[in-house]
């Protein structure tokens, strides 16, 4: 499950996109982990998370609200929080270090920026996961603009068709980039799609194709 790994984008765009994941390991520390993950959600929201989600039970729209996402978390869950800025990420990592919940924490984002955050907080970079890109019939893939939006849901639920429809709506003035970005968030069941970054990308793509 590497659903946050292959986010496509420029350094500038990805500097507004960090996902923090927390999870227990089966048979090692999963018992009683549900309450720890609920605590994680509270800490993430206090630190400025723009979205939270649960890979097991679905995002806030699927579950019926942010409160439900927090309330329903189970012991074997994998939960996330999305951030648009490094300062918030540092705030959360500081709080997590202090709380010492004992569950594994993984940060997805620009390696150098995440590394800086770890140094600031005094955390170790234990293991990393690197993306070596796309192989095979890459000629069948859509444009970079579409890929940047699509890959923010690693499960591929934010479809090319929906992205194209939303871009057309933004371009035609039928919705704002922010409304379009929120619509694109809906299918991302894990709740890791970043609507703040998406709104900026939609605005840029719509402007480029109008010009």
């Amino acid at each position: 499950m590497t659903h946050t790994l292959h986010r496509v984008g420029t350094e500038e765009s990805l500097s507004e996109d960090y996902v923090v994941l927390i999870m227990p390991s089966k048979d090692i520390n999963h018992e009683g982990s549900g309450s720890k993950m609920r605590r994680f959600f509270e800490m993430a929201l206090e630190a400025g998370a723009i979205k939270i989600g649960d890979a097991r039970l679905g995002n806030e729209y699927h579950q019926g609200g942010v409160e439900k996402v927090i309330e329903n978390v189970e012991d074997r869950a994998v939960v996330h929080a999305v951030f648009k800025q490094k300062d918030s990420l540092i705030k959360l990592l500081t709080a997590l270090k202090e709380a010492d919940l004992g569950l594994s924490v993984v940060v997805s984002g620009l390696f150098d920026q995440v590394g800086q955050c770890c140094r600031n907080v005094g955390l170790e970079k234990h293991t990393i996961n690197q993306s070596l890109g796309r192989w095979g019939r890459t000629d069948k893939l859509p444009t970079q603009e579409i890929l940047q939006l699509n890959t923010m849901c690693g499960h591929g639920m934010v479809t090319v068709g929906l992205i194209e429809e939303v871009i057309a709506d933004v371009k035609a003035g039928r919705c704002t980039p922010e409304e379009g970005a929120e619509r694109l968030f809906h299918p991302c069941m894990c709740g890791i799609f970043n609507p703040f970054r998406a709104a900026r990308l939609l605005r840029e793509t719509a402007a480029a194709t109008t010009a």
Partner: peptide
């Protein structure tokens, strides 16, 4: 702080993303 895979990726001339996942060693 160095990455053991870096020389192998470079020698093979492969593209590698500037973003990815970092486990920050908080598990117990």
């Amino acid at each position: 702080g160095s990455i053991p895979t870096a020389p192998f990726i470079e020698a093979a001339g492969l593209w590698v993303a500037h973003n990815g996942k970092t486990n920050v060693a908080l598990g117990r």
